[in-house]
Write a protein that binds this DNA or RNA. Structure first.
Lengths: 199, 199
DNA sequence: CCACATCTGTAGCGAACACTACAATTATGG
DNA sequence: CCATAATTGTAGTGTTCGCTACAGATGTGG
């Protein structure tokens, strides 16, 4: 049977553009007109490919996290919990002030509170942040087993702490904090892990 | 000369209601219809009293920060930098999970990224966050002079750090983190100040 | 008691929003 | 080469948005 006319745009390239619009304006601040213009397509193409605005956001979030997965692997492969924290926070400071991207983190800027009809957008972002946190928690559980975190250390609390600090850095970055300011925060934050290391 | 018909609603009580709507839905997510209903007034009364939606937000932010001023005094009056940090973060954990308020912090939830026409809303929130940070910085400068922070301590970096952590806690709280989780983060964060204390 | 100034409620303004009907287009399968 | 299936651009749809014109109401100053 017939297969239909093939789409003329690259879905991944279009998603990259949509991601940036959501990143810079937030979910509710991003309009379909802005999105379609950035993506270089017309509304019907958008709706055919992604369903609706929220579907487009989810696809953009998937792409966002997929792009960060390799970096996250690099972070988790650091030899000690302290080094994991340092790579995580320093990398966060750099990426959140990377001039190639909008400032901050899409998972924070995207929308912490939304109006009627978009109530589950904040939930969607939170779920993706939680994923990173659980990766960190598992890594710190391992660090305890391996003995580079002291036995009394609370892996879950440390993971939550890192998650909170990086979210906080995202808030700062979104309001114009520069790379140096974020690195200061990262440097201070890492000190906790030195105190939690096995002697 | 004549003085005109007096307004029939209490502006402060109405602002409290508006504050809660902005807090829960964000600036863009809050509609005039929701605001007027919560405030118990009609649109013309709102516009006569506050100018426009952004003016209402600013008035609500003023009231928000005014309400926190007394608490902030209490925080800054703690005897040592470490105690300042503890009071600040523990108080933040409690207030951000206070069932009488929406979760999180209005200065974070209100809107980190907004669409065309509301670009200075994020800036407005950031300016108020910066105020708290500078109060903390001055307090830590004093702590160095008084000798309870070691001479090598960086007051500005520590203030930024506290600001980042509390913003991060706000992000967590807005996505449903409970009081215990936030207190864990607070407890871990405070450890930095023990290491920065004079021996 | 009257002129005036301000507030209040009703009703609705133009603009922007997310989304879509429709016809033309472009490929595949037989 | 034809029937089918999917995409594309144009041009809208109805709804909701922030905001306001207007007329009646309610107070103050003279």
């Amino acid at each position: 049977m017939a297969m239909g006319r093939p789409r003329e745009f690259d879905a991944d390239a279009a998603l990259d553009q949509a991601m940036e619009v959501f990143w810079r304006n937030g979910y509710e601040g991003a309009t379909i007109a802005q999105l379609t213009e950035a993506m270089g397509i017309n509304p019907p193409s958008l709706y055919a490919a992604f369903g609706n605005k929220e579907g487009l956001l989810k696809a953009a979030l998937d792409r966002y996290t997929a792009k960060r997965a390799a970096w996250m692997e690099q972070v988790l492969s650091a030899p000690t919990a302290r080094d994991v924290a340092e790579r995580m926070l320093m990398g966060t400071a750099d990426s959140q002030t990377d001039p190639d991207n909008p400032p901050g983190c899409l998972l924070v800027q995207g929308g912490l509170a939304c109006g009627t009809g978009s109530e589950n957008v904040p939930f969607e972002l939170a779920a993706r942040r939680a994923l990173t946190e659980s990766q960190l928690r598992e890594r710190f559980v391992r660090a305890k087993k391996e003995g580079d975190l002291k036995p009394a250390a609370d892996a879950a609390a440390l993971a939550r702490y890192l998650s909170a600090v990086s979210a906080g850095m995202g808030v700062m970055a979104s309001s114009g904090a520069d790379r140096e300011a974020l690195r200061q925060v990262a440097n201070v934050s890492v000190k906790v892990f030195e105190e939690q290391s096995a002697k």
